[in-house]
Design a protein around this nucleic acid. Sequence first.
RNA 1: GGCGCCGUGGCGGAGUGGUUACGCAGAGGUCUGCAAAACCUUGUACACCGGUUCAAGUCCGGUCGGUGCCUCCA
Length: 466
Amino acid sequence: MQLFNTLTRKIETLQPLNPPHVNLYTCGPTVYDYPHIGNWFAYIRWDSLVRTLLASDLKPDWVMNITDVGHLVSDADEGEDKLEKGARREDKTAWDVAEFYGNYFVQGLQRLNIVMPGRITKATEHIAEQIELVQKLEEKGFTYVISDGVYYDTSKFPRYRDFARLDIEEQQAGARVEYNTEKRNPTDFALWKFSPKDRQRDMEWDSPWGKGFPGWHIECSAMSMKYLGSTLDIHTGGIEHIPVHHTNEIAQSEAVTGKPFSRIWLHSNHITVNGEKIAKSAGNGITLEDIESRELPLAALRLHILESHYRSQSKFSWESLEAAQNRLNGLQAMAALRWQPVTIDRDESAAIKTTALAILADMQNDLNSPAALAKLSALQNHLETALLSASELEAFEHFLSLLDNLFGLGLMNQPDVSVQQKQLIAERQTARDTKDWPLSDQLRDQLADQGIAVRDTAHGPIWYKI
RNA sequence: GGCGCCGUGGCGGAGUGGUUACGCAGAGGUCUGCAAAACCUUGUACACCGGUUCAAGUCCGGUCGGUGCCUCCA
């Protein structure tokens, strides 16, 4: 398995510390609002990673967090807590907001047929672990306290800028945002924030430094190390996390353990909608509900996403989603062939197996799903030309099974047509044999009303669902 | 302003120096009772200008354009 490692900016071979286990941590959502397709985009990517690991006989131990406290409106620890803000918007408590959108997110994973992480951990359920980690940092002299919280002194961690490869001094000189001037360095970040003195937060806890709540970054370090150990095999997240969130995770984790925090870092690029980035201010945050209201299956979104590479910036438009749906329909027509092998003297099981291996190899090559789908199309066209012989059925079903394991499109979920429908297909063929075209066409219309299309081949009628 | 990324046919999207993946859509054709599917053909695709090379979409430099993070938002 080859993966592009952000740490080295190179393609590397995955070498798990404890094979066949692969310790995998994914930065999950901040649950304060409905996710849009840009959010889901990343999780479908990591689903591909996990599915490829599984298909490669590896055992991913996958932990994903849910940020339900501490993520401030600005990633640079300024502004208010997103959860508290969401609570005010909806006239609920932050706890209610976290509960609602947390559940909604997990249901979304299921709706998108994303492999469920082994553990989904909530920041609010790991406050003690986070306090403990801050204490360790304090013991090692990485922290200092100012009026609004406990901060990490990034100047004490010489490798701080290595991960993002940014010239921090230059960057800050041009930044158009003001930062808390009490901080020793512009890049210093909060480990623990104090509750405001003038009002009570919905979410706050006692700590050795005073009542407050954990900083955004510390949760990922605390939870990933608790469940997966001090060195991860793979840590994933969106590219926006490279300069701040992941840089900070590395700084605080490695300062405590003295070991590499993660051996491989994977980052997924973003998706644009009609050429523009998805942003609250642009109002282009398409949701799963928007897709379903247009009667497009979520599997089409999945396929659309897999048509581009996870490190490329991808484009979304309704037109391209419909194109993906048409492609999906074609794949389902191919999958329907497994219910209707024909009698021909031919066996290309070997070709099917070769394609299966090539597709798996593409996915193992830094999740090259577009290349894998191209190989799939080549075989698909071939099979539909020649149809499927009974001798090829076993290899074909294994093939479909692999496709479903890798891509999660549910090609094998499609059932056979009913006995009655088979009867109609047979009657239509009889009508054709006797050249009773009106009856034949009437039966075809009847089947179409039931969502079944029929095409006539040299080997008899073949159905597929429309 | 700093640090990046990208510019491929109508749309989307791969391309690891050497017969222009693939998908969707379009045109013509073969086949077909009709249809569908499939197949064949077709569209002067590699932003522009230099350079390296026997050979460049692919490497190097520059120009123009777009875009990402730092700044609500993944």
